[in-house]
């Protein structure tokens, strides 16, 4: 199989302005991936499937990943001008402006996103996997990604599942409904910040997380009784 860099070059030759980036995987599996621009994803997918040298005709796995907002604290050195009093000649005091280097912690929030991951193989040429990834703009309102179901039918049920559990809206999917949860269900259970409903059931061996849930349940129950 071609390396990811070669595949990237082939994609860029075929789909101008595709904007593909290589995401390296540091683990021993060395399954590197390509991040696609959502706007060109369909064209790239069709190229990957139909190009005779790549022929990724088999979409094995589709899944979502939730990347939370990350607060990143960085230590930065900044030079500031400080006024200092220094001893001048003959006991006078002088005001002087000096540069001082201070360390400051700056915090900024790296916005999180929802990611869809596709694992492609080729049945015709028996190679693979090629990993494709796409990211949504954020986790709240801009969660659309193009559906790859028109290219690979295998994505039909799996994209429905990603929609159901992560809340990525696949535009162009012919039948985007909840699949595992019931239709009236509101939240997206696989997200990292999902709060479980209080479906507490008595457990005699409660400790750690289960105990916390039990205590929360009891305090809530008491609150409602008062």
């Amino acid at each position: 199989m071609k390396t990811v860099e070669e595949i990237k070059a082939a994609i860029e030759a075929a789909v101008p302005g595709a904007g593909v980036t290589v995401v390296l995987n540091p683990s021993p599996s060395a399954q590197h991936s390509l991040r696609l621009e959502p706007a060109h994803a369909l064209a790239v997918a069709a190229f990957l499937r139909d190009d005779p040298e790549l022929a990724f005709d088999y979409l094995s796995n589709v899944t979502g990943v939730d990347w939370l907002d990350k607060e990143i604290a960085e230590k930065v050195k900044v030079t500031r001008q400080v006024t200092k009093t220094v001893d001048g000649p003959e006991g006078t005091k002088l005001e002087q402006v000096v540069d001082e280097i201070v360390e400051e912690t700056r915090k900024h929030v790296e916005p999180g996103s929802l990611e869809a991951v596709y694992h492609l193989y080729s049945v015709a040429l028996r190679h693979g996997p090629l990993v494709l990834r796409m990211r949504t703009v954020n986790r709240t309102d801009k969660v659309e990604l193009p559906s790859l179901t028109p290219v690979w039918r295998a994505a039909e049920l799996q994209e429905r599942e990603v929609f159901d559990l992560y809340g990525i809206v696949f535009t162009g999917h012919p039948d985007l409904r909840r699949i595992l949860m019931w239709d009236e269900f509101k939240d997206y259970p696989m997200r990292k910040d999902y709060v479980e409903p209080d479906d507490y059931e008595y457990e005699p061996t409660a400790h750690d997380a289960v105990l916390k849930r039990a205590q929360e349940h009891r305090s809530r129950e008491q609150g409602s009784r008062d």
Partner: peptide
């Protein structure tokens, strides 16, 4: 395990069974 990801699959009796881990 060190940070990274892997997709492993085998031919299970019912078909291709894969696990994807990050």
């Amino acid at each position: 395990p060190k940070p990274g990801e892997a997709y492993g699959r085998i031919e299970a009796p019912k078909g291709e069974l894969g696990f994807y881990l990050i």
